[in-house]
Design a protein around this nucleic acid. Structure first.
Length: 505
RNA sequence: GCGCCCGUAGCUCAACUGGCAGAGCAACUGACUCUUAAUCAGUAGGUUCUUGGUUCGAUUCCAAGCGGGCGCACCA
Protein backbone atom coordinates (compact mmCIF):
# COMPACT_ATOMS: atom_id res chain seq x y z
CA UNK A 1 0.00 0.00 0.00
CA UNK A 2 1.37 3.37 -0.94
CA UNK A 3 2.46 5.89 1.64
CA UNK A 4 -0.36 8.19 0.59
CA UNK A 5 -2.94 5.48 1.16
CA UNK A 6 -1.45 4.45 4.46
CA UNK A 7 -1.54 8.02 5.65
CA UNK A 8 -5.08 8.57 4.40
CA UNK A 9 -6.19 5.54 6.37
CA UNK A 10 -4.59 6.85 9.51
CA UNK A 11 -5.83 10.36 8.92
CA UNK A 12 -9.36 8.99 8.70
CA UNK A 13 -9.03 7.84 12.29
CA UNK A 14 -8.98 11.46 13.41
CA UNK A 15 -12.67 11.85 12.60
CA UNK A 16 -13.45 8.61 14.40
CA UNK A 17 -11.78 9.91 17.53
CA UNK A 18 -13.73 13.13 17.34
CA UNK A 19 -16.92 11.11 16.83
CA UNK A 20 -16.46 9.56 20.26
CA UNK A 21 -15.70 12.94 21.81
CA UNK A 22 -11.92 12.77 21.91
CA UNK A 23 -9.68 15.50 20.59
CA UNK A 24 -6.80 13.70 18.83
CA UNK A 25 -4.26 16.38 19.74
CA UNK A 26 -4.34 16.93 23.48
CA UNK A 27 -3.07 19.93 25.41
CA UNK A 28 -1.48 18.20 28.40
CA UNK A 29 -1.25 15.01 30.36
CA UNK A 30 -0.26 14.54 33.98
CA UNK A 31 2.56 11.99 33.95
CA UNK A 32 3.35 10.38 37.30
CA UNK A 33 5.86 7.70 36.34
CA UNK A 34 8.47 6.79 33.78
CA UNK A 35 9.02 3.36 32.30
CA UNK A 36 12.56 2.85 33.55
CA UNK A 37 11.61 3.51 37.18
CA UNK A 38 8.62 1.19 36.99
CA UNK A 39 10.66 -1.61 35.43
CA UNK A 40 13.36 -1.11 38.05
CA UNK A 41 10.92 -2.12 40.78
CA UNK A 42 11.61 -5.72 39.87
CA UNK A 43 10.24 -8.31 42.26
CA UNK A 44 8.26 -5.69 44.16
CA UNK A 45 5.79 -5.89 41.28
CA UNK A 46 3.58 -8.98 41.45
CA UNK A 47 0.58 -10.36 39.63
CA UNK A 48 -1.57 -8.44 42.12
CA UNK A 49 -2.61 -5.05 40.79
CA UNK A 50 -0.56 -2.44 42.63
CA UNK A 51 0.02 1.29 42.57
CA UNK A 52 -1.92 3.33 40.05
CA UNK A 53 0.35 5.10 37.61
CA UNK A 54 0.01 7.50 34.71
CA UNK A 55 2.48 7.04 31.88
CA UNK A 56 2.72 8.68 28.47
CA UNK A 57 4.54 7.72 25.32
CA UNK A 58 4.41 6.50 21.76
CA UNK A 59 2.84 3.16 20.92
CA UNK A 60 5.53 1.02 19.30
CA UNK A 61 3.83 -2.37 19.01
CA UNK A 62 0.31 -3.73 19.44
CA UNK A 63 -0.96 -7.27 19.89
CA UNK A 64 -4.74 -7.53 19.81
CA UNK A 65 -6.70 -10.41 21.28
CA UNK A 66 -10.29 -9.59 20.56
CA UNK A 67 -11.66 -8.21 23.79
CA UNK A 68 -8.16 -7.61 25.16
CA UNK A 69 -4.78 -6.55 23.90
CA UNK A 70 -1.23 -5.53 24.63
CA UNK A 71 0.92 -2.66 23.50
CA UNK A 72 4.43 -1.45 24.18
CA UNK A 73 4.62 2.22 24.94
CA UNK A 74 7.92 4.06 24.54
CA UNK A 75 8.41 7.00 26.87
CA UNK A 76 11.52 9.15 27.29
CA UNK A 77 13.11 6.44 29.43
CA UNK A 78 12.18 3.19 27.76
CA UNK A 79 9.43 0.78 26.80
CA UNK A 80 6.78 -0.57 29.07
CA UNK A 81 3.93 -2.92 28.26
CA UNK A 82 0.30 -1.89 28.61
CA UNK A 83 -2.53 -4.38 29.00
CA UNK A 84 -5.97 -3.46 27.71
CA UNK A 85 -8.91 -5.52 28.96
CA UNK A 86 -12.42 -4.84 27.78
CA UNK A 87 -14.39 -5.58 30.93
CA UNK A 88 -12.50 -3.12 33.14
CA UNK A 89 -12.25 -0.25 30.66
CA UNK A 90 -15.84 0.65 29.92
CA UNK A 91 -16.10 3.03 27.00
CA UNK A 92 -12.34 3.56 27.04
CA UNK A 93 -12.01 0.18 25.35
CA UNK A 94 -13.30 1.83 22.21
CA UNK A 95 -10.37 4.22 22.46
CA UNK A 96 -8.00 1.28 22.63
CA UNK A 97 -9.60 -0.14 19.50
CA UNK A 98 -8.92 3.10 17.65
CA UNK A 99 -5.28 3.27 18.70
CA UNK A 100 -2.55 2.30 16.29
CA UNK A 101 1.19 2.01 16.33
CA UNK A 102 2.78 5.44 16.29
CA UNK A 103 0.14 7.25 18.32
CA UNK A 104 1.06 9.15 21.48
CA UNK A 105 -1.04 8.01 24.43
CA UNK A 106 -1.49 8.64 28.11
CA UNK A 107 -2.33 5.54 30.12
CA UNK A 108 -3.66 5.35 33.66
CA UNK A 109 -4.06 2.17 35.66
CA UNK A 110 -2.48 -0.17 38.17
CA UNK A 111 1.00 -1.61 37.80
CA UNK A 112 1.19 -5.41 37.79
CA UNK A 113 3.09 -8.36 36.42
CA UNK A 114 1.62 -10.53 33.68
CA UNK A 115 1.50 -14.29 33.97
CA UNK A 116 4.37 -14.50 31.55
CA UNK A 117 6.32 -12.23 33.86
CA UNK A 118 6.45 -8.78 32.25
CA UNK A 119 5.90 -5.71 34.36
CA UNK A 120 2.95 -3.93 32.78
CA UNK A 121 0.35 -1.24 33.29
CA UNK A 122 -3.27 -2.30 33.08
CA UNK A 123 -5.02 0.50 31.24
CA UNK A 124 -8.15 1.72 32.96
CA UNK A 125 -8.10 5.03 31.14
CA UNK A 126 -6.71 5.87 27.72
CA UNK A 127 -6.08 9.37 26.43
CA UNK A 128 -4.95 10.06 22.89
CA UNK A 129 -2.27 12.73 23.16
CA UNK A 130 -1.28 13.03 19.52
CA UNK A 131 -2.46 11.09 16.52
CA UNK A 132 0.37 9.74 14.40
CA UNK A 133 -0.55 9.74 10.74
CA UNK A 134 2.76 8.62 9.28
CA UNK A 135 3.56 4.90 9.46
CA UNK A 136 6.51 3.84 11.60
CA UNK A 137 9.58 1.99 10.39
CA UNK A 138 9.55 -1.76 10.75
CA UNK A 139 9.40 -3.01 14.32
CA UNK A 140 12.05 -5.68 14.04
CA UNK A 141 14.71 -4.42 11.64
CA UNK A 142 14.03 -0.81 12.47
CA UNK A 143 15.54 2.05 10.55
CA UNK A 144 19.02 1.36 9.19
CA UNK A 145 19.46 3.50 6.09
CA UNK A 146 22.03 6.11 7.15
CA UNK A 147 20.55 8.81 4.99
CA UNK A 148 17.08 8.41 6.44
CA UNK A 149 18.48 8.19 9.95
CA UNK A 150 20.28 11.53 9.56
CA UNK A 151 17.56 13.33 7.66
CA UNK A 152 14.82 12.03 9.94
CA UNK A 153 16.69 12.07 13.21
CA UNK A 154 13.30 12.41 14.90
CA UNK A 155 12.48 8.89 13.72
CA UNK A 156 15.97 7.59 14.41
CA UNK A 157 15.61 8.73 18.02
CA UNK A 158 12.51 6.71 18.70
CA UNK A 159 13.47 3.66 16.66
CA UNK A 160 17.15 3.29 17.56
CA UNK A 161 17.26 3.87 21.27
CA UNK A 162 21.05 3.75 21.48
CA UNK A 163 21.02 7.04 19.56
CA UNK A 164 19.24 8.62 22.51
CA UNK A 165 21.93 7.28 24.79
CA UNK A 166 24.68 8.73 22.61
CA UNK A 167 23.24 12.21 22.85
CA UNK A 168 22.47 11.92 26.55
CA UNK A 169 26.07 10.95 27.08
CA UNK A 170 27.17 13.90 24.99
CA UNK A 171 25.12 16.21 27.19
CA UNK A 172 26.54 14.70 30.36
CA UNK A 173 30.06 15.07 29.03
CA UNK A 174 29.51 18.72 28.19
CA UNK A 175 28.06 19.48 31.59
CA UNK A 176 30.95 17.65 33.25
CA UNK A 177 33.34 19.93 31.38
CA UNK A 178 31.34 22.95 32.48
CA UNK A 179 31.54 21.84 36.09
CA UNK A 180 35.26 21.27 35.73
CA UNK A 181 35.92 24.76 34.41
CA UNK A 182 33.36 26.54 36.57
CA UNK A 183 34.97 24.89 39.60
CA UNK A 184 38.29 26.43 38.63
CA UNK A 185 37.05 29.98 38.42
CA UNK A 186 36.41 30.04 34.68
CA UNK A 187 33.73 32.34 33.31
CA UNK A 188 31.54 31.03 30.51
CA UNK A 189 31.15 33.70 27.83
CA UNK A 190 29.57 34.14 24.42
CA UNK A 191 31.34 35.81 21.55
CA UNK A 192 30.26 36.67 18.01
CA UNK A 193 29.47 33.96 15.51
CA UNK A 194 29.14 36.60 12.79
CA UNK A 195 32.54 38.19 12.47
CA UNK A 196 33.70 41.01 10.21
CA UNK A 197 37.07 39.25 10.01
CA UNK A 198 37.68 35.58 10.66
CA UNK A 199 40.73 34.24 12.42
CA UNK A 200 42.18 31.94 15.02
CA UNK A 201 42.46 28.90 12.77
CA UNK A 202 43.57 27.84 9.33
CA UNK A 203 40.36 27.32 7.43
CA UNK A 204 38.24 28.68 4.69
CA UNK A 205 35.20 30.50 6.07
CA UNK A 206 31.55 30.68 5.12
CA UNK A 207 30.58 34.17 4.00
CA UNK A 208 27.19 35.72 4.63
CA UNK A 209 25.59 39.06 4.12
CA UNK A 210 24.19 41.56 6.56
CA UNK A 211 21.64 43.63 4.68
CA UNK A 212 21.17 46.56 7.02
CA UNK A 213 24.90 47.11 7.46
CA UNK A 214 25.50 46.28 3.81
CA UNK A 215 28.58 44.25 4.63
CA UNK A 216 29.80 40.71 4.22
CA UNK A 217 30.31 38.83 7.45
CA UNK A 218 32.08 35.55 8.13
CA UNK A 219 30.78 32.69 10.19
CA UNK A 220 33.54 32.16 12.69
CA UNK A 221 36.14 29.48 12.11
CA UNK A 222 37.26 30.03 15.69
CA UNK A 223 36.56 32.33 18.63
CA UNK A 224 40.15 32.45 19.76
CA UNK A 225 40.84 36.11 19.09
CA UNK A 226 37.67 37.18 20.88
CA UNK A 227 38.41 35.17 23.99
CA UNK A 228 41.88 36.68 24.18
CA UNK A 229 40.37 40.17 23.87
CA UNK A 230 38.51 39.27 27.06
CA UNK A 231 41.78 38.31 28.74
CA UNK A 232 43.05 41.78 27.79
CA UNK A 233 39.96 43.16 29.46
CA UNK A 234 40.87 41.42 32.67
CA UNK A 235 38.53 38.43 32.63
CA UNK A 236 41.35 36.14 33.61
CA UNK A 237 39.74 32.76 32.91
CA UNK A 238 37.17 32.41 30.16
CA UNK A 239 35.70 29.61 28.11
CA UNK A 240 33.11 29.09 25.43
CA UNK A 241 31.56 26.06 23.78
CA UNK A 242 31.75 27.54 20.31
CA UNK A 243 29.94 26.33 17.25
CA UNK A 244 32.51 26.97 14.55
CA UNK A 245 32.10 26.75 10.80
CA UNK A 246 34.69 25.68 8.27
CA UNK A 247 34.01 25.63 4.57
CA UNK A 248 35.81 22.40 3.83
CA UNK A 249 35.25 18.80 2.93
CA UNK A 250 33.28 16.42 5.10
CA UNK A 251 34.34 13.01 6.30
CA UNK A 252 34.26 10.75 9.30
CA UNK A 253 35.84 13.34 11.55
CA UNK A 254 34.76 16.62 9.91
CA UNK A 255 31.36 18.30 9.78
CA UNK A 256 31.10 21.83 8.36
CA UNK A 257 29.78 23.05 11.70
CA UNK A 258 31.20 21.59 14.85
CA UNK A 259 31.71 22.39 18.48
CA UNK A 260 35.03 23.59 19.75
CA UNK A 261 35.59 24.27 23.42
CA UNK A 262 38.16 26.98 23.91
CA UNK A 263 39.45 28.12 27.29
CA UNK A 264 42.04 30.73 28.17
CA UNK A 265 43.80 31.36 31.43
CA UNK A 266 45.84 34.43 32.31
CA UNK A 267 49.27 34.00 33.90
CA UNK A 268 49.48 30.42 32.57
CA UNK A 269 51.72 28.94 29.88
CA UNK A 270 51.50 25.91 27.64
CA UNK A 271 52.79 23.61 30.38
CA UNK A 272 50.00 24.68 32.71
CA UNK A 273 47.47 24.14 29.97
CA UNK A 274 48.86 20.71 29.17
CA UNK A 275 48.40 19.67 32.77
CA UNK A 276 44.90 21.13 32.84
CA UNK A 277 43.92 19.44 29.57
CA UNK A 278 45.21 16.11 30.76
CA UNK A 279 43.20 16.45 33.93
CA UNK A 280 40.06 17.69 32.19
CA UNK A 281 39.95 15.04 29.49
CA UNK A 282 40.81 12.13 31.73
CA UNK A 283 38.35 13.23 34.39
CA UNK A 284 35.55 13.68 31.89
CA UNK A 285 36.22 10.40 30.10
CA UNK A 286 36.39 8.58 33.40
CA UNK A 287 33.04 10.09 34.33
CA UNK A 288 31.45 9.25 30.99
CA UNK A 289 32.92 5.77 30.53
CA UNK A 290 33.99 4.65 33.97
CA UNK A 291 37.43 3.85 32.59
CA UNK A 292 40.41 5.44 30.89
CA UNK A 293 40.91 2.43 28.64
CA UNK A 294 38.68 3.62 25.86
CA UNK A 295 37.38 1.05 23.39
CA UNK A 296 37.56 2.36 19.85
CA UNK A 297 37.16 0.43 16.60
CA UNK A 298 38.27 -2.85 17.98
CA UNK A 299 41.22 -1.63 19.98
CA UNK A 300 41.67 -0.04 23.36
CA UNK A 301 43.05 3.47 23.66
CA UNK A 302 44.89 4.35 26.84
CA UNK A 303 44.07 7.72 28.39
CA UNK A 304 45.78 7.05 31.69
CA UNK A 305 47.89 10.08 32.66
CA UNK A 306 50.59 11.08 32.28
CA UNK A 307 50.26 11.04 28.52
CA UNK A 308 53.20 10.43 26.26
CA UNK A 309 54.87 13.52 24.83
CA UNK A 310 56.22 13.37 21.32
CA UNK A 311 58.30 16.02 19.64
CA UNK A 312 57.03 16.68 16.15
CA UNK A 313 60.56 17.15 14.86
CA UNK A 314 61.85 14.00 16.56
CA UNK A 315 58.90 11.90 15.40
CA UNK A 316 59.24 13.03 11.80
CA UNK A 317 63.03 12.57 11.95
CA UNK A 318 62.55 9.01 13.09
CA UNK A 319 60.13 8.27 10.27
CA UNK A 320 62.22 9.75 7.48
CA UNK A 321 65.45 8.30 8.82
CA UNK A 322 67.32 11.58 9.15
CA UNK A 323 67.18 14.57 11.43
CA UNK A 324 64.80 17.23 10.18
CA UNK A 325 65.63 19.69 12.95
CA UNK A 326 67.81 21.91 10.82
CA UNK A 327 66.46 21.24 7.36
CA UNK A 328 65.40 24.13 5.16
CA UNK A 329 62.37 24.34 2.91
CA UNK A 330 64.08 22.83 -0.13
CA UNK A 331 65.36 19.86 1.83
CA UNK A 332 61.96 19.22 3.38
CA UNK A 333 60.35 19.52 -0.03
CA UNK A 334 62.68 16.78 -1.21
CA UNK A 335 61.53 14.51 1.60
CA UNK A 336 57.91 15.19 0.71
CA UNK A 337 58.43 14.61 -2.99
CA UNK A 338 60.15 11.31 -2.29
CA UNK A 339 56.93 10.16 -0.63
CA UNK A 340 54.52 11.72 -3.09
CA UNK A 341 53.33 14.28 -0.55
CA UNK A 342 52.38 17.87 -1.22
CA UNK A 343 51.97 20.57 1.39
CA UNK A 344 49.45 23.35 1.27
CA UNK A 345 50.86 25.97 -1.11
CA UNK A 346 52.62 28.90 0.48
CA UNK A 347 53.09 27.39 3.91
CA UNK A 348 56.86 27.04 3.72
CA UNK A 349 59.02 24.69 5.72
CA UNK A 350 56.44 24.47 8.49
CA UNK A 351 53.77 23.33 6.11
CA UNK A 352 56.06 20.65 4.71
CA UNK A 353 56.88 19.41 8.17
CA UNK A 354 53.24 19.33 9.02
CA UNK A 355 52.53 17.34 5.90
CA UNK A 356 55.22 14.78 6.77
CA UNK A 357 53.84 14.51 10.27
CA UNK A 358 50.23 14.11 9.15
CA UNK A 359 51.11 11.32 6.76
CA UNK A 360 53.80 9.44 8.64
CA UNK A 361 53.20 9.93 12.33
CA UNK A 362 49.62 11.00 13.03
CA UNK A 363 47.91 7.70 12.09
CA UNK A 364 50.06 5.93 14.67
CA UNK A 365 49.01 8.18 17.54
CA UNK A 366 46.30 5.99 19.01
CA UNK A 367 46.73 6.30 22.75
CA UNK A 368 46.43 9.81 24.12
CA UNK A 369 49.58 11.64 23.07
CA UNK A 370 50.76 15.23 23.34
CA UNK A 371 52.55 16.43 20.28
CA UNK A 372 54.97 19.28 20.98
CA UNK A 373 57.61 21.34 19.16
CA UNK A 374 55.74 22.95 16.29
CA UNK A 375 57.33 25.17 13.66
CA UNK A 376 56.49 28.85 13.94
CA UNK A 377 55.16 29.26 10.40
CA UNK A 378 52.09 27.20 11.10
CA UNK A 379 51.60 28.69 14.57
CA UNK A 380 51.14 32.44 14.11
CA UNK A 381 49.35 32.92 17.43
CA UNK A 382 51.86 31.07 19.60
CA UNK A 383 54.99 32.28 21.37
CA UNK A 384 58.48 31.15 20.52
CA UNK A 385 59.80 28.45 22.81
CA UNK A 386 62.03 29.50 25.68
CA UNK A 387 64.21 26.41 25.29
CA UNK A 388 64.42 26.18 21.48
CA UNK A 389 63.92 29.29 19.32
CA UNK A 390 63.19 27.14 16.29
CA UNK A 391 59.87 25.97 17.67
CA UNK A 392 56.89 27.48 19.45
CA UNK A 393 55.27 26.71 22.80
CA UNK A 394 52.40 24.66 21.57
CA UNK A 395 50.87 21.23 21.92
CA UNK A 396 48.26 19.20 20.18
CA UNK A 397 46.52 16.25 21.74
CA UNK A 398 46.05 13.20 19.53
CA UNK A 399 44.12 10.00 20.06
CA UNK A 400 42.70 7.44 17.66
CA UNK A 401 44.72 9.20 14.97
CA UNK A 402 42.59 12.31 15.40
CA UNK A 403 43.53 15.75 16.60
CA UNK A 404 41.57 16.35 19.79
CA UNK A 405 43.07 19.55 21.15
CA UNK A 406 45.37 22.39 20.22
CA UNK A 407 47.00 24.81 22.65
CA UNK A 408 49.75 27.33 23.09
CA UNK A 409 51.42 29.92 25.16
CA UNK A 410 49.58 32.79 23.54
CA UNK A 411 51.48 35.46 21.71
CA UNK A 412 51.06 38.67 23.73
CA UNK A 413 53.72 40.83 22.11
CA UNK A 414 51.78 43.07 19.72
CA UNK A 415 54.80 43.67 17.48
CA UNK A 416 55.61 39.98 17.21
CA UNK A 417 51.93 39.28 16.56
CA UNK A 418 51.85 41.89 13.80
CA UNK A 419 54.91 40.32 12.25
CA UNK A 420 53.28 36.89 12.36
CA UNK A 421 50.14 38.28 10.74
CA UNK A 422 52.25 39.87 8.04
CA UNK A 423 53.96 36.57 7.44
CA UNK A 424 50.50 35.09 7.02
CA UNK A 425 49.74 37.77 4.46
CA UNK A 426 52.87 36.76 2.58
CA UNK A 427 51.83 33.10 2.73
CA UNK A 428 48.45 34.04 1.30
CA UNK A 429 50.22 35.88 -1.50
CA UNK A 430 52.15 32.67 -2.16
CA UNK A 431 48.91 30.75 -2.49
CA UNK A 432 47.91 29.68 1.03
CA UNK A 433 44.16 30.20 0.92
CA UNK A 434 43.87 29.45 4.59
CA UNK A 435 46.37 32.00 5.82
CA UNK A 436 44.93 34.10 8.61
CA UNK A 437 44.01 37.71 7.89
CA UNK A 438 45.56 40.55 9.84
CA UNK A 439 43.20 41.75 12.55
CA UNK A 440 43.95 45.38 13.46
CA UNK A 441 41.44 45.45 16.27
CA UNK A 442 43.02 42.39 17.83
CA UNK A 443 46.43 44.05 17.63
CA UNK A 444 44.94 47.16 19.23
CA UNK A 445 43.78 44.98 22.10
CA UNK A 446 47.25 43.44 22.48
CA UNK A 447 48.71 46.95 22.53
CA UNK A 448 46.83 47.58 25.76
CA UNK A 449 48.78 44.63 27.12
CA UNK A 450 47.68 41.02 27.45
CA UNK A 451 49.05 39.14 30.43
CA UNK A 452 50.87 35.92 29.74
CA UNK A 453 48.14 33.51 28.77
CA UNK A 454 47.67 29.86 28.00
CA UNK A 455 44.83 28.75 25.72
CA UNK A 456 43.37 25.44 24.63
CA UNK A 457 40.81 24.33 22.07
CA UNK A 458 39.21 20.89 22.38
CA UNK A 459 37.13 19.29 19.64
CA UNK A 460 34.02 18.32 21.52
CA UNK A 461 32.49 16.22 18.76
CA UNK A 462 35.61 14.09 18.51
CA UNK A 463 35.83 13.72 22.25
CA UNK A 464 32.22 12.55 22.25
CA UNK A 465 33.06 10.06 19.49
CA UNK A 466 35.59 8.49 21.83
CA UNK A 467 33.25 8.61 24.79
CA UNK A 468 30.47 6.90 22.84
CA UNK A 469 32.39 4.51 20.62
CA UNK A 470 31.16 6.26 17.49
CA UNK A 471 33.18 5.83 14.35
CA UNK A 472 31.70 8.84 12.55
CA UNK A 473 31.21 12.42 13.65
CA UNK A 474 27.73 12.16 12.17
CA UNK A 475 26.79 9.78 14.92
CA UNK A 476 27.43 12.43 17.55
CA UNK A 477 25.83 15.40 15.76
CA UNK A 478 22.05 15.37 15.89
CA UNK A 479 21.55 16.90 12.46
CA UNK A 480 24.72 16.38 10.44
CA UNK A 481 25.12 18.29 7.21
CA UNK A 482 23.65 16.61 4.12
CA UNK A 483 22.79 17.79 0.66
CA UNK A 484 19.32 19.33 0.64
CA UNK A 485 16.59 16.84 -0.09
CA UNK A 486 15.19 16.95 -3.61
CA UNK A 487 11.88 18.76 -3.83
CA UNK A 488 12.34 20.56 -0.56
CA UNK A 489 11.38 24.19 -1.00
CA UNK A 490 14.29 26.57 -0.91
CA UNK A 491 14.03 29.95 0.81
CA UNK A 492 13.60 31.55 -2.60
CA UNK A 493 10.45 29.53 -3.21
CA UNK A 494 8.85 30.43 0.07
CA UNK A 495 8.68 34.18 0.35
CA UNK A 496 10.62 37.36 0.18
CA UNK A 497 12.43 38.12 3.42
CA UNK A 498 10.31 40.14 5.83
CA UNK A 499 10.87 43.88 5.77
CA UNK A 500 11.66 45.93 8.84
CA UNK A 501 8.75 45.98 11.25
CA UNK A 502 7.87 42.38 10.67
CA UNK A 503 10.67 41.25 12.95
CA UNK A 504 10.54 40.49 16.62
CA UNK A 505 6.99 39.22 16.60
C1' G B 1 36.92 17.27 -6.53
C1' C B 2 38.35 11.80 -7.81
C1' G B 3 37.52 6.36 -7.34
C1' C B 4 34.55 2.18 -5.78
C1' C B 5 29.76 0.56 -4.12
C1' C B 6 24.51 1.33 -3.38
C1' G B 7 19.25 3.30 -4.65
C1' U B 8 13.16 -2.19 -5.78
C1' A B 9 6.22 -1.54 -1.46
C1' G B 10 5.81 2.79 4.57
C1' C B 11 10.30 -0.30 6.78
C1' U B 12 13.99 -4.52 6.13
C1' C B 13 15.40 -7.13 1.97
C1' A B 14 14.95 -10.88 -2.60
C1' A B 15 14.52 -11.31 -7.98
C1' C B 16 19.96 -16.71 -11.59
C1' U B 17 22.60 -15.36 -18.00
C1' G B 18 18.00 -9.58 -20.11
C1' G B 19 12.00 -12.97 -20.09
C1' C B 20 4.85 -11.72 -16.08
C1' A B 21 8.53 -7.57 -9.71
C1' G B 22 8.48 -11.11 -4.73
C1' A B 23 8.85 -12.08 0.78
C1' G B 24 8.68 -10.67 5.97
C1' C B 25 7.02 -6.78 8.95
C1' A B 26 3.55 -2.67 8.74
C1' A B 27 -1.64 -1.80 6.60
C1' C B 28 -6.95 -3.54 5.60
C1' U B 29 -11.28 -7.42 6.71
C1' G B 30 -12.59 -11.36 10.08
C1' A B 31 -11.62 -14.72 14.64
C1' C B 32 -9.39 -14.56 19.44
C1' U B 33 -10.03 -11.64 27.33
C1' C B 34 -2.27 -12.75 29.82
C1' U B 35 0.30 -11.68 24.52
C1' U B 36 5.27 -10.26 23.54
C1' A B 37 8.84 -10.82 16.34
C1' A B 38 1.25 -13.19 19.43
C1' U B 39 -1.48 -16.73 16.42
C1' C B 40 -5.10 -18.21 12.52
C1' A B 41 -8.02 -17.16 7.79
C1' G B 42 -8.42 -13.72 3.92
C1' U B 43 -7.36 -8.78 1.13
C1' A B 44 -4.78 -4.91 -0.90
C1' G B 45 -0.32 -2.26 -1.82
C1' G B 46 5.10 -0.71 -7.14
C1' U B 47 7.06 5.97 -11.53
C1' U B 48 12.19 -0.78 -9.54
C1' C B 49 15.76 7.21 -7.90
C1' U B 50 15.40 10.37 -12.75
C1' U B 51 16.26 11.05 -17.98
C1' G B 52 17.95 8.97 -22.30
C1' G B 53 20.07 4.73 -25.07
C1' U B 54 20.75 -0.65 -26.63
C1' U B 55 17.08 -4.65 -27.23
C1' C B 56 11.39 -8.16 -29.63
C1' G B 57 11.72 -7.39 -24.32
C1' A B 58 15.54 -3.63 -19.14
C1' U B 59 14.95 -3.92 -11.86
C1' U B 60 18.98 -6.35 -14.72
C1' C B 61 23.23 -3.85 -19.93
C1' C B 62 25.20 1.37 -21.40
C1' A B 63 25.38 6.92 -20.66
C1' A B 64 24.24 11.27 -18.04
C1' G B 65 22.04 13.29 -13.78
C1' C B 66 20.18 13.21 -8.50
C1' G B 67 20.86 11.24 -3.53
C1' G B 68 23.64 8.24 -0.12
C1' G B 69 27.81 5.07 1.91
C1' C B 70 33.02 4.01 1.96
C1' G B 71 37.96 5.39 0.55
C1' C B 72 41.26 9.18 -1.33
C1' A B 73 42.07 14.33 -1.79
C1' C B 74 40.92 18.75 0.78
C1' C B 75 40.94 19.83 5.99
C1' A B 76 45.97 20.94 10.62
Amino acid sequence: MSLTQLMEQRRAKIAQWRAIGCEPYAYRYEVTHHADALLARGDAVTQEFGERVRIAGRIMTMRGHGKAGFAHVLDPTGRIQVYFKSDVMGDHFRRYELLEVGDWVGIEGPLFRTRSGEISVRADQVELLAKGIRPLPEKWHGLTDPETRFRQRYADLFVNLDVRETFRRRARLVSAIRRFLDGRGYLEVETPVLQPLYGGAFARPFVTRHNALDVDLYLRVSNELYLKRLIVGGLDRVYEFARDFRNEGMDRSHNPEFTLLEFYQAFADVEDMMALTEQLVSEVLQAALGTLHVPHEGRTLDFTPPWRRVSMLDAVSEKVGESVHALDEAQLARLCRARGLAARPGTGAGGLLDELFSELVQPELQDATFLIDFPAETSPLARVSRRDPRVVERFELFAAGMELANAFSEQNDPDAQRAAFEAQGAARARGDEEAQPLDEDYLRALEYGMPPTGGVGIGIDRLVMLATGSRSIRDVILFPQLRPEEGRPTPDDVAEPAEEGAEGR
